[in-house]
Every structure is written in C-alpha cells, then in structure tokens.
Design a protein around this nucleic acid. Structure first.
Length: 556
DNA sequence: TTAGGGTTAG
C-alpha cells in the first residue's frame, strides 16, 4: 500500500480511534503494517483490552499469519476480562492458522486462571487442535466436560470428538461417540469415515463402503468431503474397484473439481498400482496444489519410476509451485529406489540451498537408504554421525538393511545395537542381524541372536498378505493353515514351484536358519504369505478372465 | 466478533 492510500485509510477509520470503529477498520484492514498501526493507536487510546478491539486485532493478525503478534494481544487480555466469545474466536483463529498448540494452551489458560469457563462452542473449537497434537488425555477431559455441559452430544462437539479420537487412534471411542450423539449429519458421518479409514485394518476397510451406503439410506447425502475421507482406506489395501467406483461417483456428482478429491484419487490410483491412471487424473485436475504434485511424484517414486518423478518435480518448479518437505521426501525416495545416488545427493543439497527446507528425519532416512543401496555404507554412517538430531529407529533400520545387502557385519552390529536399544520389541532387527550372520555362515552369531530373542521373549511377526476376491478380502499369514481353502492353496503353490523351477528359478535359501534340511528350507519359503495370496487368487479366478477385460462394477 | 468433517511422505 502506498503512503498516500495509507493516509487515506487512516483518515477513513477516523482518529482518535473509538471501540466501535476500530473493529470495523481491522476487519477490512489490507496489510499487516496497518494492523500494527491500528494496534498502536488502540494501545495509545487505552482500548487494546476492550474485548471487541482485542478480538478484531487477533483475527487481523491471524489473517496475516502474524501469530507472534496475536499471542502478544492474548497476553494482555487476562487483566481485561475478555468474554467467552472473544476467547472462542481466538481459539478457532489460532487453530485455523495451524497453531494447534497455541489454541490448546489458550483454552488451558482460560480454564486454569479460572476467569472464564469454556462453553460448548469453545470445546468444539479446541477439539481439532487437541487431536492434531495427539493429546488424548486432554481430549478425554474435554469429552467429560462436554458430557457434563449437555445431556447428549451436540453435533459439532460429537464431530470434534470423533475427529479427535480418530487422530489419537481410538477406534472404539470413535464409534461410541458417533452412536451417542443426539444428531448425525454429513459432517459427523465424514468424521466417522475418516477416523475409521485412517485407522482401518485391512479386513475392515471395505466395511466403510457399507457405512457409506447406510449413510445414503438414512437420507444423508455424501458431499465432496466424503470422498477424500474414504479413499485412503481403499488406497491402503489396493481395493482398486472400490476406488474406481468412488472416482465415477465423484464425476457423476460434480465433485471432481475439488482439489482434495483430485489429490486423493491420484494417491489411490498410484497405491493400487495404476500409475498411468493416476497421471490421467493428475493432468485433469484444474488447479493443483502442493499435495496433488506430491501425490503424483510419490506415486512415481513408489513404483520406481524415478525419471518421471524427477521430471514432474522439474515441471512443478516451472509451474511456480513451491515444493515442501514432503516433495523432497518423495524425490529422494525416487532417487534411492532407482539407484540415482548422485542425483539424490544434489537434491539433498538443493532443498536446503535453493528452497530453504531444513532436512528432517525422513530426508536423512532416504539419504541413508540411497547411500546404503549404492554400497556406500561408510558414507551413510558418517551422515548419521553428523545428523543435527538423534537418529531414530528408521535410520538405523535402513543402515542395517543395507548391511544385509552388502554383507557388512561390522556396521550391522553397530546399527543393530542401536536398534535393540531404541526399539527393544522389534523382532525384525534381530532377524535381520541373524540373517546377516547366516549369509556369512557365522553360526555363532546366529545362535547368539536367537538366544537374545528368547531372553527378551520376542518372536518374529508372521508375514501377512491379503487379496480381494469379489467383495471379500482374504488375509493370509505365513505358515497359518486356517483358511478354508488351504489344501487347494498349498497344492497350487506346489504346482507353481514346480513350474518355476522348470523355467530355471532357484530360490535363495541363504537367510533361512542354517540347521534345517534343504527340502525344509524350500517348504518354509513356499508358504510365504504373498505366495499363498497369489495362489488363492489364481484358483479363485474364473477361466479366461484377466483384469483388463473385466468391467468395474458400479458399486456406488 | 465464537463452533464440527477432507488429500501427499515417514
């Protein structure tokens, strides 16, 4: 704003300021500079503590992202006894600006200082923040408070509680609150679906689809928010038919132009292995945001299409879309998958130098994987040693994994030691170390690790795979013969093994325990859960049907 | 001047 229009603006709001005109001026205030000027004028006229003025100042500062200024206003408020509406406005404003911790602290302070008791609106405002912070204990207290305040749960509070419990991974509570709420609407249904979708087990994911149908049967029409709530559940179990149906539904309902719908569809297609479909959806999104770009770059990365991932990243920069921390996680993961060691190194520097993004744990994890896969284990170890924060289990796990590939026992022992300390319940690290010893025929080491596992009382978790046949998801565990069709499944696996050997396949038995006879080793590998799932799929498929000639059913 | 639900990685 030029200085002449500034003068005009100040004239327009009329000085000396009064408590009625200041809020109006702040509401239409076009810049942070002017908000600060008006704040100064309010302080000079001793109006900064007026609840209307303070509330308007807060909203103006939050609108410009000046949370430090907002907090300064907040700090002057207790002495002036703000009303409950001012506080609620503050809390919702802080929350909307992504300052979840400040929002929660504001409510805690309001309560602790005893000058205002939060009302139901205040509880609604802060629940989302509490969920984002994962503060389950605070959330439970708010739940109790809301129950005391009203006989049955109001829809907004119920939605907030469902959302909070969902973010804190309390599945049972999600359903309980939903059932106890006095009124359900599309928002509470969406919160329920999102909560279950976020925390769904494989076998439960498709039940959400039934929930979606029940919601419609009760006259609650899904809205554009429903689609990104439900899609992650389908994406996570690669339920392509359901995902495709959701796509058709979005097109029919005119939801496709919603950016959340578009990005969630890109992600779903990529996770279901349909990268070309993901790209078609991505290209059709009318205006993309950083999440849409990340979903597509991540989709290429997860399928090892590093060249496409990097190319899309360059297009992103050309389109003036600012990359974020997730973008670089995806780009680095793509480089790591494809063995593009030098490119990965360059992007790791570029993110800091050109984009001002400080590497986080996941970026270091990608770099350790990238260097480890290339056999540069010492360099990976040096990078870990130079990290500005304490490496977590993923970092050491990645190094240990690379040590297995490159049979480096010395570094493996260092990494494993760290892992045993950081994640004492993770049987995987013991098994990995044991496999590394086994590959080097160091049977003493194998036995030592086995004894350690016994002492700690750890067992290796069974491998688990699943396959969807028609609308049912079948779970298969390695070595578990509880599936009703197991005899036929085993028969099919045997047949496939014979066929594979005939075609020249020789399974590697290096990593299996050394004291098992050769034939037994093959048997152990033969009941690998993925093989069982594939075999079940093959014996369940009608003859002459391939996935490409099958029409997607109209599920929705 | 106050309230609820949504997409990406790890």
């Amino acid at each position: 704003m030029s200085s002449s229009s500034l003068v005009h603006f100040l004239r327009h709001v009329s000085f000396p300021p009064d408590p009625h005109l200041l809020p109006t001026a702040l509401k239409s205030c076009p810049s942070l500079l002017l908000a600060r000027t008006l704040h100064a004028a309010a302080v000079a006229a001793d109006l900064a503590g007026d609840s209307f003025v303070a509330s308007s100042l807060l909203h103006a500062y939050i609108r410009f992202g000046a949370t430090a200024d907002a907090r300064a206003v907040l700090d002057t408020m207790p002495q002036k006894k703000p009303n409950v509406i001012t506080w609620n406005g503050l809390v919702s404003g802080l929350n909307r600006s992504g300052c979840a911790r400040d929002a929660a602290l504001a409510v805690a302070r309001m309560h602790a200082e005893g000058f205002l008791r939060p009302d139901i609106t205040g509880v609604s405002c802060v629940l989302s923040a509490v969920g984002d912070l994962g503060e389950i204990l605070v959330g439970e207290q708010l739940h109790g408070y809301a129950v005391k305040a009203g006989s049955r749960l109001d829809a907004c509070v119920a939605t907030g509680l469902i959302d909070m419990y969902g973010k804190c991974r309390r599945t049972e509570e999600i359903v309980r609150v939903f059932n106890e709420s006095s009124h359900i609407d599309v928002a509470s249904c969406n919160a329920l679906i999102a909560g279950l979708s976020r925390n769904s087990q494989v076998s439960e994911a498709l039940r959400l689809f039934k929930l979606f149908r029940e919601m419609q049967a009760q006259g609650i029409e899904p809205n554009p928010v429903t689609i990104p709530c439900i899609l992650p559940a389908f994406a996570n179990v690669a339920a392509l038919m359901h995902g495709r149906s959701a796509h058709c539904f979005s097109l029919r309902k005119g939801f496709f132009h919603n950016i959340y719908v578009g990005s969630a569809l890109v992600d779903m297609y990529a996770k279901c292995g349909k990268v070309r479909d993901a790209r078609m959806v991505f290209d059709a999104i009318p205006s993309r945001n950083v999440v849409s770009w990340n979903a597509m770059i991540g989709g290429y990365a997860m399928h090892g299409e590093a060249a496409n991932a990097v190319q899309l990243f360059q297009s992103m920069l050309i389109c003036k879309q600012k990359p974020d921390t997730v973008t670089f996680t995806c780009v680095l993961a793509a480089c790591s998958q494809a063995g593009l060691t030098e490119d990965g190194r360059c992007y790791f520097s570029e993110m800091q130098r050109d984009h001002g993004i400080t590497p986080k744990m996941e970026h270091y994890a990608c770099m350790v994987t990238l260097l480890g896969r290339a056999g540069k284990l010492d360099e990976a170890f040096d990078l870990i040693s130079d990290m500005p924060f304490k490496p977590d289990g993923c970092i050491w796990g990645s190094l240990l994994g690379s040590c297995r590939v490159h049979s480096n026992v010395d570094l493996a022992e260092v990494a494993a030691e760290k892992l045993f300390h950081l994640e004492p319940d993770n049987a995987g690290s013991y098994v990995l170390l044991s496999n590394i010893y086994a590959s080097k025929k160091m049977w003493d080491g194998v036995n030592r690790v086995r004894e350690m596992m016994k002492d700690v009382g750890l067992k290796k978790e069974k491998g688990c795979s699943w396959i969807q046949i028609k609308s049912k998801v079948h779970m298969l565990l390695a070595g578990d013969d509880s599936h009703p069709m197991m005899t036929a499944i085993i028969e099919k696996v045997k047949q496939l093994n014979i066929e594979m050997r005939r075609l020249g396949f020789a399974p590697s038995t290096d990593f299996v325990l050394h004291d098992v006879e050769e034939q037994e080793k093959d048997d152990i590998l033969a009941v690998h859960s993925e093989k069982l799932a594939v075999a079940l799929g093959l014996i369940s498929k009608p003859r002459n049907i391939t996935s490409s000639n099958k029409e997607p059913p109209n599920l929705w």
